[in-house]
Design a protein around this nucleic acid. Sequence first.
RNA 1: GGGUGGUUAGCUCAGCUGGUAGAGCGCUUCGUUUACACCGAAGAUGUCGGGGGUUCGAGUCCCUCACCACCCACCA
Length: 1026
Amino acid sequence: MAMEKTFDAKEAETRIYAMWEAAKCFAAGANAKPGADAFSIVIPPPNVTGSLHMGHAFNNTLQDILIRWHRMRGDDVLWQPGTDHAGIATQMVTEREMMLNQEPNRLDMGRERFVERVWEQKHKSRGTIIGQLKSLGASCDWDREAFTMDGGFHDAVLKTFVDFYNSGIIYRGKRLVNWDPHFQTAISDLEVESVEVQGHMWHFKYPLAGGETYTYVERDAEGHVVREEEQDYISIATTRPETMLGDGAVAVHPDDVRYAPIVGKLCEIPVGPKETRRLIPIITDEYPDPDFGSGAVKITGAHDFNDYAVAQRNGIPLYILMDGAGSMRDDGLSYADSADIARAVANGEMKSEEVDVDAVNLVPDAYRGLDRFEARKRIVADITEEGLSVMMPDEEGNPQPYVEQKPIMQPFGDRSKVVIEPMLTDQWFVDTAQIVGPAIDAVRQGDTRILPEQDQKVYFHWLENIEPWTISRQLWWGHRIPVWYGFDLRLTEFTDDEGDGTLDPTEMLRFLTAENLVRGTDRHHAAMDADAVKEKFADVIAALPTPLNHARVVEVEDRHAAAHRLAGSLAQYEIDQDPTQLVYPIWRDQDVLDTWFSSGLWPLGTLGWPEETDALKRYFPTSVLITGFDIIFYWVARMMMMQYAMVGERPFDTVYLHSLVRDEKGKKMSKSVGNVLDPLDLIDEYGADAVRFTLTAMAAMGRDLRLSKDRIAGYRNFGTKLWNAARFAELNSATAREVGVSHVAPKATAPVNRWILAETGRVREEVDGALTAYRFNEAANAIYAFTWHMVCDWYVEFAKPLLQGDDAALKAETQAVMAWVIDQCLVLLHPIMPFITEELWGVLGTREKMLIHADWPTYRADDLADAEAQAEMSWVISLIEEVRSARAQMHVAAGLYVPMVHTGLDAAAQQAWKRNETLIKRLARIESLEQVAALPKGAVTIPVRGGTMGLPIANIIDVAAEKARLEKSLAKLKKEISGLSRRLENPKFAESAPEDVVEETRENLAAREGEASKLGAALARLAEVG
RNA sequence: GGGUGGUUAGCUCAGCUGGUAGAGCGCUUCGUUUACACCGAAGAUGUCGGGGGUUCGAGUCCCUCACCACCCACCA
């Protein structure tokens, strides 16, 4: 069959992939030799509704290279694929589509139906990304494809949650967390991005209580008074005036003498109805920086992380001002009642812990229900109007409200892009400090290696300063938190009418109305499933007084439903006095787990844990994780912590963190900027092999890579080059099909064949060495340079005369060597360019196995090394290069064959000539070689090792050009010679430098001097001509 | 404010444990020699960011400065 001139990637890639799949080539353990070592990789699971972007293409190319390489080496290989349910992202995608389809929205749909709807979305889009990975050539064991919400995986998540819960690693609490007002859920620190934006800082007066005054004195660095005045207020700077309503105190630094006179006094928050304005104390704390702003900070514990810490330290009450959407609250108690409670706390009549923060609402009616940014505007306007802004003179000296324009770091949700609000809410947390130890030690001790090594520092820094991890999300799509709640009927405040210290069931029942229950105390339990939970609650019930101890457990939707159900049940009991009809309602936590909590279990979960599966035994710990450095905290660190916590073992032997793929200008690819290169488009245009090779060649460790289409086209051309080398071999019967499949290097006698075999041995070691060290780019470059510049540029050219010559034995030998060498190129290139190599493998021979399962070579460079042949061929190559260079510069017509002479070549050179005469003559366009006593006048001089050669072409030579050429070469040589001799003349060099370096320098110098003298002689001859 | 990486040919970047600079693309000239014009041959281009130090010798190690990028961080 005649080969086409180019490889049709589009047609072939699909066909070849299907062939591999049909033959189950990717299955775990396929091509494993008996007793082979396991080699396993878990794929970083892409979002199930996502599509392949350049980062995925890069990431999976690297994984596939390692997988294919190890598979060919006969290891027991598993590449575990799968997708992530990606809570927020998938919920977002689904809701967007529902909106486009004009389906009812999530809330109208209800939780159960909505979750079903997301599953539909999942099923619909799952194939997309998987198909895209396949078109890239990823050789995952697709039969094992996992999903983070599969039943088995869910078991792993549940078990982990329950174990953590039972050992106190997971806890629930009302804490200040990052709240995303768009998605209306808590998010973790990592999902918040700080962005610098232009902001304002307002300066307001908080009047001192009772019109009190003090002398405010400001001094410069030398202690001179720069300002002194009587003030009846304290000046506060804030970027968030809307939070003033929730202030609990004003704090100043204990050493700040300016405010010493008023510490402990009260000041008034200058917002809201005048008659009900709250007074808050002026306290001291280390937190305020006296040099910043006025040095006085308002403390709003429920809406700022710093303030929260100050409030905790000083017992300052927390007041929640906003709802989940980021609007000023319009629920709970009236403003007047709330203000009364706040005053009672301030007076010490009530403890701040006793305040029901969810009920107290200190937002005045005028601001209730306003969006937070609208409220800010109104409050600023109101304060300014009232004259409570601090005034500063403008350029003309007229006093103006003091508002600084300044850049501030503002937190945004990484997905929603809205301003994140610190919110005081009930959430679940992982106390990561308890499980972080082994994850740090593993890397410290080298049990797990992180590459590039500099990223270890980042890893350590984060883990050593780890904060609790907020794992609950107020979403519907995800692993629902396996915790059920029931009312603690023992602890609720009953009125003991008889005062005898015992609880009368009837008194209890009267008290247990829905309203009281809703405000009562919960008691929660976690378990693997509802049955186990019921058992737990049975114990709780048994401990209750009669008749409640007869109640049976019933699960209801939520807390409200539970309260009503219980109240109803009790009302019924009042009537029929039948305790067996009493129910004890429980309800499940409404929240789901952070997606990263489940993907944190990816290695264990995909291998079947908590079941003791064979896969787990065989492939865990996994060999290497390849992922982007941007998820080192999100994912890598958490996997380390979680696998250690659950099974006490490292999840990976090595973690290879790669960098980001950027556009050709170095910008991060993003949809909004529109600079995204879609890997699928590129695959379509250039073929998967070209895209893969480009990414591999650019994968220098630890550096971002800039992708350009030119580069991809260049590597597509490389594929064509390989294709045509194979095509040449095929046309000349130099293929495995013709000469037979050879697993070992054929024997060769001709230097040119011995030489290429030696070079093949070298490149095989180079490729293996580079891959072992995860230097993907070096592996790519080594095999690229070998294939193109050794095999194509030289060997194929050398082989032409031999293949077309009369020497049958030499021809046969060359065919055998060429067939083998090209096979080796295919084998060594296959991990990087799987499609074209597999195709050629099939075209060039009939084999026992497909290339994907071919044996990776183990011959060593030393086995194939041939010093004599290598030296001889390097002589031949440099001769040809010299002749070509001289001809080009002398403008000798490219196709013209010219005679050549030499002046007494030494024996080695003569032999080299003789044995390679046909090749040299053809490639250098030499007609003949004759020995002469001296180079004729006007000859072009070609200095070679072991003699001087020349082209006696006086009739076509341009004397001036030749003179210039020689002088240029000579000048370069002289520069080198002077450098080398200066080194050798330095006595310290000989003393301290290693012998071989000194020796090499000497040889170098001698060679340069020899060449220089030849050029000098040539110049002299030219002078005679002139 | 900390941390990390970068600054090498016109462009994009290699250069691992110090021995005196490379690749691809682009550019110039020549070439349809029966594998390949997605090609071949030849060629031009570098104070390796500035300064200092260690060393016989530094793009490579140390210090320092400048600029760029990214990550982390609570300055109201």
